[in-house]
Amino acid sequence: MYWNVGRVKITKIVELETTGSTRFILPLASNEEIRKLPWLIPHFATDEGRLKMSIHSLVVETPTRRIVVDTGLGNAKEGRNVPTWNNRNGPFLETMTEAGFPPDSIDTVLCTHLHVDHVGWNTTLIAGQWVPTFANARYVFGKSEYEYWRDHSVEPDKAAVFSDSVKPIAEAGKADLVASDARLCDEISLIPTPGHSPGHMSILIQSDGEQGLLTGDVAHHPCQMAHLDWSSTADSDPVLSAATRRELFSRFADTPTVVIGGHFNAGRIRRDGDAFKFIV
């Protein structure tokens, strides 16, 4: 699955897809409440009101760069707080290669934030060592995000993620720590969108008069456009994340901007009363 924004192509590489089983992340998104939002069906929810979500990477090809945005869960990782995320042995790299993106062809890895399901394929276990998966790439992390997790990964699951998927990149000398409003190249710039994590960033793509927005986890699901106060259980600051959603969605509502989520497919944001809806 792919989308074009001017001369930029965005390809979704799926690691894991789920239907339902998401109440742990969005506890207020009951089946009954979701059925009250018919515009979610069928693309983002089932007729029964079960949410459709995915863990995926987005490969962003500009005329000069080949960028992987977020890197999923990874294989052989341990200490995760979701049992099915431990010791995975999935075909993600083979899927990428078959789609035309072998790891050695990637020149940039950009993480919107440093949570478990966005950094896993940063590294691969080889001969007992965690090494950078994308050997020819620079890894771009938000400076404030990196420094926060470097200094605050005290819980065992957070410590495991940082030590096997982030720290080895820095130790290999491949990490570029940037401001959360940095410009990466002519077509790609960053927007600070804190709340889900302290240094969370979204990605603005501009090319040939067209515009795209990669939201990361500002919202885990489009239902949060209708219910801005439905903060994720993973949000570090639920009040700030709700304010960030309103600010970001207001900025891009009723424009032709192609919006792609960290866990959902593309659409366009439309104002709907005091909130928003998402139209494919």
Rank of each mutant, 00 (worst) to 15 (best):
V8D: 07
I10E: 08
K12T: 14
I13N: 11
I13D: 09
E17F: 07
E17T: 12
T18I: 12
T18D: 13
G20L: 13
S21R: 12
F24Y: 07
I25A: 15
L28V: 01
E32H: 07
E32Q: 11
I34S: 07
K36D: 12
L37F: 07
L37M: 15
W39Q: 10
L40P: 06
P42V: 11
F44P: 04
T46I: 09
D47L: 15
E48S: 15
G49C: 10
L51W: 02
K52P: 03
I55P: 02
S57Y: 03
V59G: 04
V59C: 05
V60Y: 04
T64F: 02
R65F: 00
R66N: 02
R66C: 06
R66K: 14
I67H: 06
I67E: 05
I67P: 08
D70C: 13
G74E: 02
A76I: 05
E78N: 09
R80E: 09
V82L: 12
W85C: 06
N89S: 08
P91H: 05
P91C: 06
L93S: 08
T95D: 05
M96R: 04
T97D: 02
A99V: 07
G100M: 07
S105Y: 05
I106D: 09
D107W: 05
D107E: 07
T108W: 11
L110N: 03
C111G: 05
T112G: 14
V116P: 00
H118L: 01
T124S: 14
T124F: 01
V131G: 05
A135Q: 15
N136T: 10
Y139Q: 12
Y139V: 10
Y139D: 12
F141A: 08
K143W: 04
S144R: 14
E147K: 06
P156S: 06
P156R: 04
D157F: 15
A159M: 06
S163F: 13
S165P: 04
K167H: 12
P168A: 07
P168W: 10
P168Y: 09
A170E: 15
G173K: 09
G173V: 06
K174R: 15
A175H: 03
D176A: 14
D176L: 15
D176V: 13
L177M: 07
S180P: 00
R183D: 03
R183P: 00
E187I: 13
S189M: 09
S189L: 08
I191D: 03
H196I: 01
S197A: 13
G199Y: 00
H200C: 05
M201I: 12
L204N: 11
S207N: 03
D208H: 11
L214I: 08
L214H: 00
T215P: 03
T215G: 01
T215A: 01
D217F: 03
D217Y: 02
A219G: 01
C223Q: 01
Q224I: 01
L228N: 11
D229R: 13
A234S: 15
S241F: 01
A243M: 14
T244C: 05
F249M: 12
F252M: 05
D254H: 11
D254R: 13
D254M: 14
T257M: 09
H263C: 11
G267H: 10
I269R: 09
R271I: 03
D272N: 14
A275N: 14
A275T: 12
I279S: 14
I279D: 15
